[in-house]
Design a protein around this nucleic acid. Structure first.
Lengths: 347, 347
DNA sequence: CTCGGCTATTGAAGCGCTTCAACGGCGTCC
DNA sequence: GGACGCCGTTGAAGCGCTTCAATAGCCGAG
């Protein structure tokens, strides 16, 4: 039997018909054993199950969903698994998917729009029940394409007012607001917001929140704009402005629009002699990206509710899949502040 | 047309037959347009393509692979996407998969054997070309099941001498060896290895390497064993032994068998007054897990070659898929040392 | 002893696609 | 001008499964 099993495996895998023949029953009975066991007499069921085991039969999911008309998987496409937000999100999504008896397939578009489109199409063709997408900028065409095929898409972490679908966001305005409030509470007299490219919506929102907090407190907030939210850009900013910040009349609070920027800024500031952190300059990140935490000095940041975003996104998707009368909704979750050495230790 | 498209999307998606009818050609011709365009006259091709666009036709990948007999995707199953090793691995695997025209599906078993089995079966039933598995301990049954169905599996990061298949490993003995050598080079006179549970092969190997380096240098290496490789256990170890380490006659070098342990140890040591790091005690991690880098003091560690492991694993898998005469191989890649403040700054 | 009403099983009709033998039209060559 | 070959196209036969109407077998009620 071992030989026999091995041989049949080497060649083509055994089909349901093979199982039926081996068990001396009809094809439909095998199907019933698998899908409606209560319809089958116990003796028959046992015989079929034994045949299945002996032949090493594996259901063909492709044929199954062809005949049955649907699959039980959903997909999550994220731009970068290196960002811990998306890892947390995938964990939440997976847990919630299993609650609903769905399997979650994860794909990373590696920050490439082309790759994102490839996966959208792949999952579209695979007839998944629906998709969760943490879209890149300019994803509209791909999203609309999938949606127009009747396949629901829930957006996560990024919204597009022109796309009409369920969305799960974190409150990036609050993110910036909390970051600024935290810095202000440590006694800084001046704020600097290091912004990324205009097109990055989360970054824009954080700026808005920070600005609001600053004006509420009557503190000046100045702006530094960079072309990319990377550690390298952060280092450049630090080198360029570090001396001026340290020389300011009052203590300066820096809000980096992402943790990678914060990392770079800290790296360069710490390399400059005579600047005390957080004495002269206090620095905050604002997206809780753990892969930026390889820092010479642990820095404060704002943590996004990644896990809950994943959970909520699956809930919305499941509702839309089931829903005859579904109305698109947007869920907004709040981030939380994470205080560390780059801002504390002084008043 | 917009209405029409929307309607057909709401209901069932259009099939190839629908396209054929719309374009006034036979079913087979549509298939040819999609799969062998050069066989079709240009005028016909254009007509068909237009019909496809108008109907919003999407190939059904399930039917396709049923009829065609194969898919073009492979899967990667990892225990935890929170560990940056597996994130790097998935990036490498994805890049290499695309080189070969394959799509990579990623699944996380969330450290649950049951979940790992679920995904093994899911991908088995989905008739993927093969799987990459970073197995959990005790995975043999599931792996053998999939392999016995004729579906190749490549193991990553963990080997099992009882399972006969291609494997990609990092050299954990070298990992421990490098860590110990690095500490010795900074002038420690005594080494401590903080080991995890016996059953964790990588941890055992690191201990072996560290032991070897210690004996080569004629330095004593003592052992502390913990039940789990977590930050909490690390803190417990630090609290228990910290004072003794600091009081030792010579400078002590601590090798934690994982970065999470190192993190915990550092957290507790730094909370104890009067201990200088790396003056009295130097601490190293040894698996380069970036999610443990939220450390009060950046620590040295050994970085695994995650990306290259992903690439190599896909290569082996592709070879086995293609290979009539395939011989199982094991590729071993070397880690590299990462020096930071927890060990440097003193001689 | 018959018949209605069960339950367990069967067989066939698709699901949407790929593949391939067969076909028809047309230009070529002798 | 007829035979030949070629290219573009067709139609049908599956791929492995689900579903469902139809059937067979069985029991108890009449």
């Amino acid at each position: 039997m071992s030989d026999e099993a091995k041989q049949s495996a080497r060649a083509a895998q055994p089909s349901m018909q093979d199982v039926a023949t081996a068990a001396g029953v009809a094809l439909g009975t095998v199907s019933n054993v698998l899908n409606h066991p209560q319809r089958v007499a116990e003796s028959t069921r046992l015989r079929v199950q034994q045949a299945i085991a002996e032949l090493g039969f594996v259901r063909n999911a492709n044929a199954r969903s062809l005949a049955g008309g649907s699959t039980d998987s959903i997909a999550l496409i994220v731009p970068d698994l290196g960002n811990s937000l998306f890892v947390d999100m995938s964990k939440g999504a997976q847990a919630e998917a299993r609650e609903h008896g769905l399997s979650l397939l994860i794909a990373s578009s590696a920050d490439s729009l082309a790759e994102q489109d490839r996966y959208l199409d792949l999952f579209d063709e695979a007839r998944t029940q629906g998709m969760l997408l943490a879209p890149m900028h300019d994803s509209r065409a791909g999203i609309e394409r999938v949606r127009s095929h009747g396949r629901p898409v829930v957006l996560v972490n990024y919204s597009d007012p022109l796309i009409e679908c369920c969305t799960v966001l974190m409150d990036n305005v609050l993110d910036g607001y909390l970051a600024a409030r935290h810095l202000l509470s440590t006694g800084v007299g001046e704020l600097v917001f290091v912004a990324g490219p205009e097109r990055l919506q989360p970054v824009r929102d954080r700026q808005l929140g920070a600005t609001r907090a600053a004006s509420e407190a009557g503190v000046e907030l100045s702006l530094v704009r960079v072309d990319a939210v990377t550690a390298a850009e952060g280092r450049a900013v630090g080198s360029e402005h570090g001396a001026a910040w340290a020389a300011a009349a009052c203590r300066v609070g820096i809000i980096a629009s992402t943790d990678l920027l914060a990392l770079g800024i800290l790296q360069s500031l710490l390399a400059m002699p005579g600047i005390s952190i957080p004495g002269d300059v206090a620095v905050m990140g604002s997206d809780g990206n753990r892969s930026a935490w390889e820092s010479p000095l642990p820095f404060s940041t704002v943590e996004p509710p990644g896990y809950r975003m994943g959970v909520e996104a699956v809930r919305l998707l499941v509702e839309e899949i089931a829903g005859a009368s579904h109305e698109h909704r947007t869920t907004v979750l709040s981030p939380s502040i994470l205080e560390r050495e780059s801002t504390l230790g002084h008043r």
